[in-house]
Simulated assay, not measured.
Amino acid sequence: MRKSARIACLAAAGLLAATSLTACANDAASTAASGSGGKGDGKGEKVKIMVGGLDKVIYMPAMLTQRLGYFDAEGLDVELLSEPAGVQAETALVSGQVQGAVGFYDHTLDLQTKGKHVESVVQFSHAPGEVEIVSAKASKDITSPKDFKGKKLGVTGLGSSTDFLTKYLAVKNGVQTSEFSPVAVGAGPTFVSALQKGSIDAGMTTDPTVATVLQKKLGTVLVDMRTPQGSQEALGGPYPSSSLYMQTEWVDGHKATVQKLVNAFVKTLKWMSTHSADEIAAKMPADYSQGDKTLYANAIKSTLPMFTKDGVMPENGPETVEKVLKAFNPNIKNATIDLDKTYTTEFVEKAAG
Rank of each mutant, 00 (worst) to 15 (best):
Q176P: 01
Y59T: 01
C24T: 05
Q229V: 10
A11N: 01
S20P: 06
V118G: 06
K283Q: 15
G44R: 08
N329H: 12
A299T: 00
G115P: 12
G42M: 07
M313Y: 10
P145V: 01
D338S: 14
E130A: 10
I133R: 00
H117L: 13
S276W: 05
D77H: 06
A281S: 15
L325K: 13
L76N: 05
A184E: 12
G159W: 13
A352W: 14
A352S: 10
N329C: 05
Y245M: 09
V57P: 00
V87K: 03
I49H: 00
L68P: 11
K260S: 06
T344Q: 08
M272H: 07
V131P: 00
T162H: 11
T31V: 15
K216R: 15
F347G: 06
S199V: 14
I337P: 04
L169M: 08
M272R: 07
Y168E: 01
P128G: 05
Q99E: 13
K56D: 07
Q196M: 11
T162N: 06
T91M: 08
A202D: 05
A277K: 09
T206Q: 09
E315T: 09
L218M: 14
E79G: 02
A28F: 04
D55I: 00
M204I: 11
P61K: 05
T156D: 10
A281N: 08
I58P: 00
T257A: 04
T248F: 07
V155I: 14
T303Y: 03
E74C: 04
D163P: 02
S30F: 12
F328W: 15
G86E: 13
G40D: 13
T257P: 01
D55M: 02
A194H: 12
F124S: 01
G236W: 12
T113K: 15
S30C: 01
T22Y: 14
N316Y: 11
D163G: 04
L195R: 10
W250N: 00
I49L: 02
D338W: 05
T294R: 11
K39T: 12
T248N: 08
E315L: 14
G198D: 15
K270P: 00
S178R: 12
A286W: 00
P228S: 11
E319T: 04
G198H: 15
T212D: 12
N26W: 02
L80P: 01
T206R: 00
G115E: 10
A13P: 02
L214F: 06
S289P: 00
Q215M: 11
S242F: 03
A28K: 02
A211F: 06
V183E: 14
G159P: 03
L269Q: 03
F104N: 07
G103K: 04
E119C: 13
T344F: 13
S241A: 14
Y288I: 00
K283P: 03
V213D: 01
G157V: 07
M63A: 09
D41Y: 07
L111S: 01
P208Q: 03
L109H: 06
G154Y: 09
A286E: 13
P228I: 06
T206L: 10
F124D: 07
K350S: 10
F124E: 04
Q290P: 00
A327T: 13
G35R: 08
A297H: 03
T268Q: 08
D72K: 13
T227V: 09
A256V: 08
A25H: 14
T31H: 13
N316S: 12
